[in-house]
């Protein structure tokens, strides 16, 4: 044995955790629909707000949501960020836009990728639509929507963001 040994202070020991995802009643219904190419939310029986993705309850009222609502492919940009750092193990090249989008017919936003856009032109209130993966790739996953892209519709006034009916701007 050599007397001169390298001093070991840190050893990298990756831990791999594999989970079975138990969807629960509300996400199970949401995922079953998105597998068929349909984006759905759930309506609060008390305040009528529509949640997407539904988690089975309204956080504001603290009551269960049951009624299922089909949402539009069209949505509004509530806010966004332009990201300049790469996502580990993801082919998306920075800079790319992550937007908080509210689908027509829903009252909360979720984050998704934006593409087919000029980053500098994206703005709060911009109208966008979902671009889906090819049907044969649809799984039980939100990623069935590949990204959102801008559409040629008038901006939504800020006080109307998150309040449009499923029929969109024309109401």
């Amino acid at each position: 044995m050599s007397e001169e040994q390298e001093v070991v202070t840190v050893v990298k020991a990756p831990v791999y955790l594999k989970y079975n995802f138990t969807a629960g009643a509300a996400p199970a219904r949401f995922l079953a629909q998105i597998k068929k190419g349909v984006l759905t939310g759930q309506r609060c029986p008390k305040c009528s707000a529509v949640y997407v993705p539904p988690r089975g309850s309204c956080g504001g009222c603290g009551v269960a949501t049951e009624e299922e609502v089909v949402l539009s492919n069209k949505a509004t940009v509530q806010s966004f960020t332009i990201v300049y750092i790469p996502i580990p193990n993801n082919p998306i090249q920075p800079p790319y836009i992550i937007a908080n989008v509210v689908p027509d017919g829903a009252n909360v936003s979720f984050i998704h990728l934006m593409s087919e856009c000029v980053n500098e032109d994206v703005h709060i209130g911009a109208r966008v639509e979902a671009v889906w993966k090819p049907k044969e790739e649809w799984a039980f996953a939100m990623d069935n929507i590949r990204y959102y892209r801008p559409i040629d519709e008038p901006n939504v006034p800020v006080d109307q963001i998150g309040k449009l009916p499923v029929t969109g701007l024309e109401g």
Partner: peptide, 19 residues
Amino acid sequence: PFSTHLNAGAGGYFAPIIR
């Protein structure tokens, strides 16, 4: 599975709120 996996960290979450 019910959200898209973008891994943008805390900065990615708070930047739109700052905007």
